[in-house]
Design a protein around this nucleic acid. Sequence first.
RNA 1: GGCCCCGUGGUGUAGCGGCCUAACACACCUCCCUGUCAAGGAGGAGAUCGGCAGUUCGAAUCUGCUCGGGGUCGCCA
Length: 600
Amino acid sequence: MYRDRMCGDLRAEDAGKTATLAGWVNRRRDHGSLIFIDLRDRSGITQVVFNPQLNEAAHAAAEDLRAEWVIQISGEVVKRREGAENPELPTGDIELVATSLTVLNPSLTPPFEVRDDIDVDYATRLEYRYLDLRRPRMYSRLALRHKVVKLMRDYLDEKGFLEIETPILTRSTPEGARDYLVPSRIHPGQFYALPQSPQQLKQLLMVSGVDRYFQIARCFRDEDLRADRQPEHTQLDLEMSFVEQEDVLNLIEDLYIYVTERALPDVEIEKPFPRLTYAEALERFATDKPDLRFGLEMATLTEIVRDSGFGVFKTVADSGGVIRGFSAPGCAGYARKEVDEITSIVTSAGAHGLITIAISKDASSIRNISPENVRSVIKSHVELDTVRKICTATGAAPGDMVMMIAGPEGVVNTALSILRNHLGRRLDLIDTNQVSYLFVVDFPLFEWDEDESKWAAMHHVFSSPRPGDEEKIDSDPGAVIGQLYDLVCNGIELGSGSIRITNRQLQERVFELIGHSRADVAERFGHLLRAFEYGAPPHGGAGLGVDRLMMALTGDDGIGDVIAFPKTQQAVDPLFDAPAPVEPDQLEELHIAIVQRPSE
RNA sequence: GGCCCCGUGGUGUAGCGGCCUAACACACCUCCCUGUCAAGGAGGAGAUCGGCAGUUCGAAUCUGCUCGGGGUCGCCA
């Protein structure tokens, strides 16, 4: 037995007992004769004392110890002498007086120190990920993730869900993200695809009568990476039979409350989860994934300013664009430099510029503002009354600054949403102790793809229209509302789900609208459509990102730290140095030849 | 594929045309030290400044290309 206690366990009441600990040397403090070692394992740190007068051999051995050596120590737990307690450590009231030391494994000098309060180059961290993960901050993320996933399993088990594995080697499907492909050795020239999600498989499980399915499923997408995207991510995939949208939403809400309250007992959750329609979310927050931990709600000003006399407004409004904005509280005093900084945020998001109106805090009220109270480029072009209307619409008060953007609706919303999030942080409006879930519902089923001049599924092709909207598929596709929902947390889109189409004819109309030929559909989706003809129960579910949930719960800006072994933005694993070339023999077996493109 | 930021001893930074024979902190090595806990003190070793090419009398510093990391747009049903 290497140990009988963990390094984070020992307390004052253990004083007098003997204990054997094993772990890593976190730090060595050598006083010449007295040597202190902070011994670390995943549970915490215990201070070990080597006193030459008490045990000369152990002390002599301790002189060689260095950071990250793996050692085993036996000794007596003693209460620290008065004044020598360390209130920073849970074990700070005691120390282990070493009677024996065994070096289990020495360590090279690590490339970076194993501690939380240092910032190391990301590539170096990934190359030495095993050292990076020794940092308490990183370990706590692994532990929290384990807990969250276990809570999900516990809850769903309790509710009668079956966890079922689905194939990783499956078939490429059209649309969606680029697939990761796996060549077949047995079938020359043919490929498996790694699943982007187990979507069709779980629907087949519903046809199979499984009734309630879930899976902590790995999903693969060969697309460019972002802070919140990895080539492979994990989703909580679930599906239920004989349910309506309301049933699914209620289950998800209950599940996420269950998980969050148990994983993070100290955070506040708004219950029940607010629900916004897609249209309402865009109208109020300029995005379909608003962070509801703060306000800063939008106002549409197009009609107020269209004929106000400011040329830009007129031009944009008459060409079908919009003018929207919001009030940034207490920002009237922003200097030119700060406004420029904010402007560059919206211009890099595609907007032409930012129009601001600062209302001096000297104004007694919006009703009584005078020209001296207003600072804005549009001041000389518009009536004071227009300024009043803008302030009323955006809810601006004296001391605030209205920020407006004019342009095509999509660009305006993107820029305003980025700006809103920026100001939420900048003005410190976010209560980080709050976890704010929200459902966005009533998404349109289809969106017009400008590039390809065709209709495309907003979510995926299996989502069902709202009852009564089926007729519009042919007459007015853009107006079809789907039984489609997103779960959003702290401004992060966790995932989405829908009630599925279970009627073959309806499914074929959808395929037709988005431009799949009959032959193509038969080839690619024939298995699913055939299944639907053998008694498919009404069903629906969702796929919800686990990495992103962890990112929301930890407050991280990216998903890299909640994944044990993530990849870089170039989809490289610096630890394994993957991807990598393979032996010619392997390629030969797979019937693959590497072709050099002329340009390369 | 586009745009933006970053790249200086092991780690994190400073230096931004000559003062650089490159500075500082931590880590590392040697020595001193019995109550430290980011221990302290004295000393030491360690980087031709990501790479290549150019501009210049002179480049860590300017330019171009390239490699690597990050952010973002496109993309991500």
